[in-house]
Computed example of a mutant assay.
Amino acid sequence: MSTITSTALQTSYPPLLPNSFNANQPKTIRLYPLSNYTFGTKETQPEEDPSVLARLKRLEEHYVEHGMRRTCEGILVCHEHNHPHILMLQIANAFFKLPGDYLKPEDDEVEGFKMRLNERLAPVGSQFSGEGVNEEWEIGDTLAQWWRPNFETFMYPFIPAHVTRPKECKKLYFIQLPRQSKSP
C-alpha cells in the first residue's frame, strides 16, 4: 500500500483575481432594422480624376499646399433579418465606398467629418449649406487607421519606419445610427 502526499506550491505573491464580469466590457452597440431608414439617390457627381495617376497627382498638389491629407470614413451598421449589414454608397453603378471624404485642412476632425457626412447623406432637397451641422451623428470609436507613406496607391495600418512624413491618414469610425431616420 502506498501513500499519496500532496504538496502545495507556495508563493509570496497574492493570487491574481480576474476582473469582475462587468469590468472592461465593450459598450452596447444597437443595430436597428434596415427598414427603419429611407434611401434615395442624388445627382451623379462627376469623378474628380479621370485616372488613378491623376488622383495621386492631385494628392501630391494637396500635400505641397496643405501637408498631409486627412480622410474620415464611417462604418454605419444596421440589420436585415438579424444579419448585420454595413451601409455603403454606390458610385456610378460601378463600385461601393464608405460614406466620408477628405477633410478641409482647417477643419476639426470630428466636426469636419460630421459636415462631410451631412453633405453625402443629407436627403435630396435639404438646404444643407455647411452650417447647422447635424449634431445627431454619434461618431464612435476609431476602428482603423491607414497611412499612405508616399504618392502611391498602397496604404498601411502603420507608418513604415523609414517614413517621416506620410502623405495621407485615413481613419474609419464606427457611427451609431439613430433608431430610425427622420421624416422630411
Rank of each mutant, 00 (worst) to 15 (best):
G140R: 00
R30S: 13
Q127I: 11
R116P: 00
P178S: 04
R70D: 07
T41N: 12
K104P: 01
V133E: 11
E65N: 09
L16W: 13
V133P: 08
Q180N: 05
Q180D: 07
I4V: 12
N134Q: 02
Y37E: 00
E131Q: 04
A94L: 13
G40A: 12
Q180K: 12
P26L: 06
S12Q: 08
D49V: 03
W137H: 01
P99G: 06
L87R: 01
S183Q: 14
P184T: 06
G140Y: 00
K57H: 02
N150Q: 13
K171T: 08
R30A: 12
P184L: 10
D108N: 08
Y63N: 12
F174S: 06
I175L: 05
V52W: 08
R165H: 14
V52M: 06
H62M: 12
H162I: 13
P105H: 02
T28G: 00
W146E: 01
G130L: 09
P166C: 05
E43I: 13
N150G: 03
I139C: 06
V110Y: 00
E111G: 04
K170R: 09
R148W: 04
E60Y: 03
K104D: 15
E131D: 05
N19A: 15
T11H: 05
L98P: 05
P84H: 09
T142W: 02
H62N: 14
E106W: 13
S126G: 00
E135G: 09
N82A: 10
V77E: 06
L98V: 03
P166W: 06
G74H: 01
N118L: 11
T142V: 15
E65F: 13
S126Y: 07
G112M: 02
I86M: 15
G125V: 01
P15M: 04
E136K: 10
I86H: 04
N134F: 02
T71Y: 12
A92L: 13
G140D: 00
E60R: 09
R165N: 11
E80D: 09
P26S: 10
V124Q: 14
E60M: 01
P184V: 10
V52K: 10
F158T: 10
E119W: 08
Y13M: 10
T11C: 11
P184Q: 13
H81R: 07
T3K: 12
N118V: 11
A161T: 15
F151E: 09
P26Y: 01
E135K: 15
G74R: 04
P149Y: 07
S183T: 11
T71V: 14
A23F: 13
K170D: 01
A92C: 13
F96W: 10
E109T: 09
L172N: 05
E60F: 00
R70L: 06
I4C: 07
K104E: 15
S2C: 10
Y63I: 05
V52P: 02
I139P: 06
C78M: 03
T11K: 02
D101R: 14
S6H: 15
K27P: 07
K97S: 06
S2Y: 10
R148N: 04
T153Q: 11
M115S: 11
P15D: 04
